[in-house]
């Protein structure tokens, strides 16, 4: 793989556990040896540089706060090794404490801090040394759901404020979307898709990325071509012309996999489209989720904006169409996206 992270960018490595994202991060940090290839900061190849000389800031999954040092002691730790005068260290520590909003805890021992506060200490400790790159290894995975959202906003704000190049590792796609400028979705050590959160959500490079990012339904269908115009056939009774398709080797008829996100279904009033039976529904306020069975027996999830009328009950039959400008059409193996990415 080869990728370039821009200065000041918030870059995220996203993937299921065991995909190699943490290994990659630890190679950047210098804790794992690099077996082949090179990693460079600006023009400088850092393969052989020891961790302490790389000028990186690292936030560990378990924070790695030194339990024997106070908050202040932890944050000053990296500075103390750099022959900086004491007053300057104190000033820098005070500044960063203000930035991460934990001034009032500066003399506390780590054991008296909540998870979120420890997280802020870890963050402050990593950025106070003004690193070239800030590395974060699943920093939010030990926090509860609400704190996780607060902290990810705080991290994003902080990163924007300090303007530090950041490499962030997570397996939580929502978190990745919320904080990142660009995301690399990884699987088995290979980058599946590299792009902005919007690109990755709306035009996932393959079926893996489509299913990993957000929720989606994968439906089999047939792509037919008549005089250069494409038409998508789903089930026996539903076909829809599609305009934003580009197939490398056009054929009259192609088996395809179609990724339709729950919100990309439209319920039709007339009885045209894909016939489906309601199995059950979940009312979530703004939206209502329906789980439906297609004629093929496949279970699908669809999302509709909630209406004031009665929620459809199990057993009712509905007819569905898809938003052709939003869905993604893949080859039969699910590896190649036929949908043109320009047509967002």
């Amino acid at each position: 793989m080869s990728l370039e992270i821009k200065k000041g960018e918030f870059f995220t490595l996203l993937g299921p556990s065991g995909c190699g994202k943490t290994t990659l991060l630890r190679m950047i940090a210098g804790f794992n040896s690099i077996e082949g290839g090179t990693i460079s900061f600006n023009e400088r190849v850092i393969n052989q540089v020891e961790p302490g000389k790389r000028n990186i800031g690292m936030v560990f999954q378990n924070y790695a706060i030194f339990p024997h040092l106070t908050v202040k002691g932890n944050i000053a730790f990296g500075l103390e090794n750099r022959k900086i005068p004491k007053e300057q260290i104190a000033a820098k520590v005070d500044d960063i404490l203000k930035v991460v909003q934990i001034e009032q805890y500066k003399d506390r021992m780590p054991k008296n801090l909540s998870g979120g506060q420890q997280q802020r200490v870890a963050l402050a400790r990593a950025i106070v040394i003004r690193p070239d790159v800030l590395l974060m290894d699943e920093p939010l995975s030990n926090l509860d759901a609400k704190l996780r959202i607060d902290m990810r906003n705080a991290i994003k704000d902080l990163q924007r404020e300090v303007g530090i190049t950041t490499v962030y590792v997570t397996h939580d796609q929502e978190e990745a979307m919320a904080v990142s400028d660009r995301i690399a979705v990884m699987k088995s050590g290979i980058i599946q898709h590299l792009g902005t959160p919007q690109e990755i959500y709306q035009r996932p490079a393959n079926v893996f990325v489509a299913t990993f990012i957000g929720r989606t339904n994968i439906i089999e269908g047939t792509l037919t071509q008549v005089e250069g115009r494409y038409s998508l056939q789903i089930g026996s009774d539903y076909a829809e012309p599609v305009s934003n398709i580009r197939v490398p080797k056009p054929q009259a008829s192609l088996k395809v996999q179609i990724s339709v996100r729950p919100e990309e279904f439209i319920m039709t009033e007339d009885q045209s489209g894909i016939r489906a039976t309601i199995v059950h529904s979940v009312f979530l306020g703004q939206n209502t989720h329906y789980f439906v069975d297609l004629e093929s027996g496949q279970r699908n999830e669809i999302t509709q904006e909630s209406k004031t009328s009665q929620i459809l009950s199990p057993g009712e039959v509905i007819y569905l169409k898809v938003k052709t400008d939003k869905i993604n059409v893949y080859d039969a193996a699910g590896e190649l996206n036929y949908t043109r990415s320009g047509q967002l």
């Binding site: 804790f31 020891e50 302490g52 560990f60 999954q61 750099r82 400790r125 040394i129």
Partner: peptide, 18 residues
């Protein structure tokens, strides 16, 4: 002692006896 504590120290330039 978590390995990450040692790594945190290393990444801040502490090694060996220090």
């Amino acid at each position: 002692v978590d390995q990450s504590l040692m790594e945190a120290a290393e990444s801040m330039g502490y090694k060996g006896f220090n």
